[in-house]
């Protein structure tokens, strides 16, 4: 800024209209004469009153700051009023300074209205031409226009310098191609037991009619296995209307679906046991459990994938097969 303001262009407009260059720009009036507003504010008494008011603000601020310290140290931090009191003390302390400063400006400083000229927001044609000439002269001296070899080898060097960025960035994650395959792999294998969050396997009879349970493959509740969460639901006999070919995927009214919404990947498990709606709380996709969890409302485009169920010889629920399609939200490589 200083370069401009001290440049010649500014001098023809000046700064504040009435202050000559070199002047401090302050009106030379005693404070008492500067009271700006109505008659009741004029005079030394009003001025004194304003001064006391501003000083009171600053005083309140100091007191509040001390109160902050008192609360900070004297109150146990577990007290339910601890944080609110700290907030109030801090706020009062800050308001005191702020209100005081503004009142000072409004009541004690002169209410001036200053005018400042703008400098033109463009350079003179001569200036622009001069600059262009300097640039042209410099470019000419480099010879970049004539020396094609230099030009292209330089551009080539800049281009090849960008190459090292590629492996550096791609090493941020494990190799993407392998991971895309990982997205398509079912976290459940055939024969995996359905276990609760605490790792207990689930058997017939553990769920009442209208019951739902979040289950994991063989006790693997690790957060890294984020596509694995599945819900096991017990429908009443005859309620399920399986897709053709999936008649054997239910066991005695029990059905299992991926809990991960096919829209944006939230756990969609707000199950209404009478309407059999399964709602996702994030974007309100609604799936109909009795009809292979097909989407009936909201942004989801695909049904929740179904996990084929079976019983092992101890009577516990197991996956009858792996999931037959990729779980969770769609992605480019998904067919």
């Amino acid at each position: 800024m200083s370069t401009h303001d001290s440049a010649g262009g500014e001098s023809l407009t000046g700064n504040t209209s009435a202050s000559a260059p070199g002047d401090t720009g302050r009106p030379a009036n005693p404070p008492s004469a500067k009271s700006p507003t109505g008659p009741e504010d004029v005079g030394p008494r009003a001025d004194k009153r304003s001064e006391r008011l501003v000083a009171t603000c600053f005083g309140v601020s100091s007191l509040a700051a001390i109160a902050f310290l008192v609360v900070f140290w004297a109150l146990p931090k577990t007290d339910v009023a601890y944080t609110p009191l700290l907030g109030v003390c801090l706020a009062v302390s800050l308001f005191g300074v702020g209100v005081g400063a503004i009142l000072w400006a409004k009541k004690i400083m002169p209410d001036e209205e200053a005018v400042q000229e703008r400098h033109p927001m463009y350079s003179t044609p001569e200036d622009a031409a001069k600059t262009a000439a300097v640039f042209a002269e410099g470019t000419e001296k480099t010879g970049v226009a004539r020396r094609r070899l230099l030009r292209y080898s330089f551009l080539g060097a800049m281009g090849t310098l960008a190459l090292p960025i590629v492996p550096i960035i791609s090493d941020l994650g494990v190799h993407p191609r392998g991971n895309a395959r990982q997205l398509k792999t079912s976290p459940w294998k055939k024969g995996d037991r359905l276990t609760t969050e605490e790792g207990a396997p689930v058997r017939i009879g553990d769920l009442e009619y209208g019951g739902i349970l979040t289950v994991f493959p063989n006790g693997n509740t690790s957060p890294s296995n984020s596509l694995a969460p599945t819900v096991l639901i017990r429908l009443r006999a005859g309620e399920n209307q399986p897709r053709p070919g999936r008649e054997t995927w239910e066991v005695d009214g029990h059905v299992a679906y991926s809990a991960i919404c096919t829209h944006a990947g939230c756990p969609a498990k707000l199950y209404e046991q009478q309407t059999h709606h399964m709602l996702c709380p994030c974007h309100q996709s609604t799936f109909l459990v009795t009809e292979h969890c097909r989407p009936i409302f909201g942004p989801a485009a695909r049904p929740l994938p179904q996990l084929p169920l079976a019983l092992d010889n101890e009577g516990f629920f197991v996956a009858g097969a792996a999931y037959q399609e990729p779980l969770g939200p769609s992605f480019w490589e998904r067919s």
């Binding site: 504040t16 300074v97 503004i102 400083m109 703008r118």
Partner: peptide, 26 residues
């Protein structure tokens, strides 16, 4: 279009703007 009318930076605007910082913080 060629001028600006208002308060000068110092002292009036500095006091108001500075005070306003404390109000926002408050």
């Amino acid at each position: 279009e060629e001028n600006v009318v208002g308060s000068r930076m110092y002292p009036s605007y500095a006091a108001k703007g500075g005070g306003f910082f404390f109000l926002v913080f408050g």
